[in-house]
Design a protein around this nucleic acid. Structure first.
Lengths: 118, 118
DNA sequence: TCCTTAGTTCAAAGGTTATTGAACAATTGG
DNA sequence: CCAATTGTTCAATAACCTTTGAACTAAGGA
């Protein structure tokens, strides 16, 4: 780790909800959830916002305790803090993600991606 | 009814989350949920904000589709749109309310109240 | 060492949100 | 009709949020 993260019991519900209430950040979280276990770096999200703007939104998510950012070389590896969120607010993350699937006004999850052939 | 409300499928997840992300509105929703079935008028929430400010927050909740406001005489009867929310985003409202119970940084639900003796 | 890559920080602009008091409208009871 | 009760609307303010480009730092490869 390296950047400041709240501890599990410092995570605040209103702040989490407000943070997830932004469409760009909700899209980031949905994408992280769809790739759970795989740490992603910021460049994976460039379809969602500019580099500068991503930095801003990823900081918000981190400060709210929704994601974890680990500095590795020149990259940041971003992961969902699912365990902590589930411990603190059981069922919340899952129902938000399920709700996002059910909201047809939202763009489909995932980012345009080039799969490298095996 | 009387005031504009979104239809069930017009309810937007990001907007609902953002609206619930405000502590005053979250407190209103928690109180409504604790008194489910009982329509409350605005004066029940005067512990949470000033009259003017309540008008603002209750309008936000109504416009987001979280509550229903019905004009009755000089009052507005406010109810949670639980059926619609459950249909649109199953489990979401319950996990938010449960999460609020689990967040010790939030004030306890409910408003100071004088019970009329039977 | 020099260049590229990955991301952050800064300052500024523009927009939205929350809160307030004063004034307003509408219903109801005397 | 008059007055009280309920709640809304308006204008103003202060705070906060989002987005941007330019400048920056730090690590890694040639």
């Amino acid at each position: 780790m390296s950047l400041p993260h709240p501890t599990t019991d410092q995570i605040s519900l209103p702040i989490v909800l407000a943070v997830l209430g932004d469409p760009t950040r909700l899209a980031i979280v949905r994408y992280l959830a769809s790739k759970e276990g795989v740490p992603l770096n910021c460049s994976k999200f460039l379809d969602l916002a500019s580099k500068t703007n991503l930095s801003y939104h990823l900081a918000k998510l981190r400060e709210a305790g929704v994601t974890r950012s680990e500095a590795v070389g020149t990259s940041r590896l971003i992961t969902l803090r699912r365990d902590d969120l589930d411990k603190r607010f059981p069922g919340l993350l899952d129902s938000v993600i399920a709700a996002a699937e059910g909201d047809k006004a939202l763009p489909p999850v995932g980012v345009s991606e080039v799969e490298v052939s095996a």
